[in-house]
Every structure is written in C-alpha cells, then in structure tokens.
Computed example of a mutant assay.
Amino acid sequence: MSAKQTIAIIGATGNMGAAIARSLSKGKNRLLLFSHNQDKSQQLAHDIKNSHTSADVESIECKVNASWEADIIILAVPYGAEKEIAAQIRDVANQKIVISIANPLNETYKKMVTPTDTSAAEELQKLLPNSKVVKAFNTIFAADFANPVIDGKQVDSFIAGNDAEAVDTVTELVKTAGFNAIVAGELPASRTLEHMMLLLIQLTMKHNYNWLAGWKILHN
C-alpha cells in the first residue's frame, strides 16, 4: 500500500484483536483501537507505542467514530457479535473494506452454527451490502502473530473476497503481520476457510499443539 491508511480494530483488546494490533503497528498505517474496556485499549496503545516508537496508534471511545474515520475496519469479535456491530456501523462503513476474522463455531468446537451454504463472511456482507467484506486472519491462532514462523516455516494466512482491489489491500496487511498471504478466491471460499479453522482447533485439542499451529501449503 502506498498511501497511509487508517485501520479501526473493533474488539482490539481480545486475544485476536490485540495480536492483530501489535502486528499491524509495525506497518505505516494509523490504528484506532476500540474496546468496551477503555482502560485495556488505552494500555494496549501505550504498550504498542513503547514497543514501536514510530507507531501511529490510539484508543478511541466509540466504534462508530472509529469506523467513520477508518479506511479499513477489522471486526476482531466473535461471530455472535457481528450482527449488532454491523447495524451500528453500516452507514459509516459505506464503500470501505471490512475484514471478517470470525469463525462461527459452536461452544464445543464440534461444528458450525451457520448453514452449509454460507459463511460468517457472507452473512456479514449481507448485513453490510455497501461495504467490501474480506475474509482474513481467521485461519491462524492469536499466538501465531508473535510467532509467524513455526518449525522454520512461515505460516500461511488465507484471504477471500469479491473485490480484487480490497483483496490486494488486505493481502498487504497480512504480509505486514508477518504471514505468507494466499488468496483463496471470492467470498464463498470463506466457507472452506472457516472449516479449516474448525479442523485446526480440533487437531490442536487432540494433539496438544499448545495453540501455536498453522496451515502451510507445500508446492513446487
């Protein structure tokens, strides 16, 4: 990305939100951090500035204002929270990139709560019809952001979206975060990507990967 862009991270103090914020602060973009816990988001902004003195990051008290100021909005929230947030930011997210990281898993991590013919990202696109929804960051654990190279291999992070320019922009963000970016296809590919995370969680619980694991496509 050539021009500096403003990125709002909604849910910035959750495990994934904080990991994304810390990783993207290494880039040249401006970060707006929103959390219902203002003390935690202010502390996160402070910690990021201490780690990266050139980081342009601030805590912001209103998700609507954050989304209004942003070029890119990252919903670092559970699937169940997306509908309410989408209703709140719909008008200010017009024509903007909105990144869906959610995986619509049930409480036991055994299946999806969405029907087989859709995905969290596609449902979000319906809720935000004038936004450019892109699926990203959903196939990786929060711990992977601090360790994007596992066993000597850079973790792959998959992206899906209908708008080619938006996908290109998000691809650069994924690279900034330290991952190998792979474009999987248009938004319906999110169905596969969300099931990939379901499988990775199940494998991690079964084989005790200690929540530090990722996907890697091997090819010649």
Rank of each mutant, 00 (worst) to 15 (best):
S2Q: 11
S2G: 15
K4L: 12
A8D: 04
I9S: 02
G11F: 03
A21E: 09
L24V: 09
G27A: 10
K28H: 15
H36C: 08
N37I: 02
K40E: 15
Q42K: 13
Q43C: 04
K49M: 11
S51C: 13
A55S: 08
V57S: 05
N65T: 12
A66I: 04
E69V: 01
A70Q: 00
D71Q: 12
D71P: 11
I73P: 07
I74S: 07
L75C: 06
L75F: 11
L75N: 02
A76Y: 01
V77C: 08
V77L: 12
A81W: 03
E84G: 13
A86F: 00
A86G: 06
Q88L: 10
I97A: 09
V98D: 13
I99G: 00
S100Q: 01
I101C: 08
A102G: 10
A102R: 01
P104Q: 07
E107L: 14
K111M: 00
T116F: 13
T118L: 04
E123I: 14
L127R: 06
S131E: 12
K132W: 05
V134P: 02
T139K: 03
I140R: 02
A143M: 13
A146H: 10
N147I: 02
P148G: 12
V149M: 04
D151K: 04
D151G: 05
D151E: 14
V155L: 05
D156P: 06
D156T: 10
S157P: 00
G161R: 05
N162Q: 14
V167K: 02
L173G: 00
G178A: 08
I182T: 05
A184S: 15
A184K: 08
A184H: 13
E186G: 10
E186Q: 12
P188N: 05
P188F: 03
S190M: 07
M197Q: 08
M197E: 06
L200E: 02
L203K: 07
T204F: 06
T204C: 07
K206Y: 09
H207G: 06
A213R: 05
W215R: 04
H219M: 08
N220G: 08
